[in-house]
Design a protein around this nucleic acid. Sequence first.
DNA 1: ATGTCGTAGATACTACGA
Length: 292
Amino acid sequence: MRIATWNVNSIRTRFGRVVDWLVREDIDVLAMQEIKCRPEQFPIAAFEQAGYSVEIHGLNQWNGVAIASRHEMTDVAREFDGMPGFGKPVKGQEAVQGFGPNELPHEARALGVTVGDLRLWSLYVPNGRSLDDPHFAYKLAWLEALREDTRAWLDEDPQLPLALMGDWNIAPLETDMADPSFRPGASTHVSPEERSMFASFETLLTDVVRPIVPEGYTFWDYQAGKFPKNQGMRIDFIMGSPAFADAVTGASIERDERKGDAPSDHVPVVCDIDVDLLGGTFDDDDDRPMVF
DNA sequence: ATGTCGTAGATACTACGA
């Protein structure tokens, strides 16, 4: 079972490339971020023709998350408890997107689904914009609420195979940041507050890719030739619970997807799961009998 | 190099977000 995350930077621009990659790499579940569209604008047919169903959470041209899967998805969640909002209240949008505990409108940054035994989230963590911007406080509050929900989910079921996958917009280690325009003490993504917040998730979850792929970036800004200069950053992660991490047998960062025509500025991050190690079954596995 | 993308719209350019 192959599971991946990819900030696609507009699915309407990128769907051909994304579906080609899904088929070529035999991906079972892909968590996407920055789809930048509403559900009715999403190119669902291209995914269905390749054997995937899609769950979508998109409110407008910004943000937006989706999950494509070859297996049935259930228990779809389009927010987590206590998720804060941001911006100015939009009249008439209350019923569509709801409001966070701070009474500001929700953004489309989180989508949770259950696939077999797995609980999977596609997450697009707020960028923060700059250290003195209200968006930065929003980023930290959004992550804190997510962490407390993660703690509650695992308190309730310590054996839950859970993965939080997506664009975390944090470079946890010094070696994760090679873009010279992000400077310690002056920039988002590398601040002590963000790194401390990321570390607090690591008391609950582990980066299942890092042990297998210790080097490499997942994002390179389009500007100023940062990809050819390899001035990238590692900000896309698959964070797994103990039960999830124990089933991981492989991982990769798909650097070649930053090459060629019209790439996203992010590349896919992949992990392989041995479903036999999860203790349950997948109803549409074709290589094993079902076991109840 | 204010160096690139993607979105929307009171569009053929500007504003915004990343």
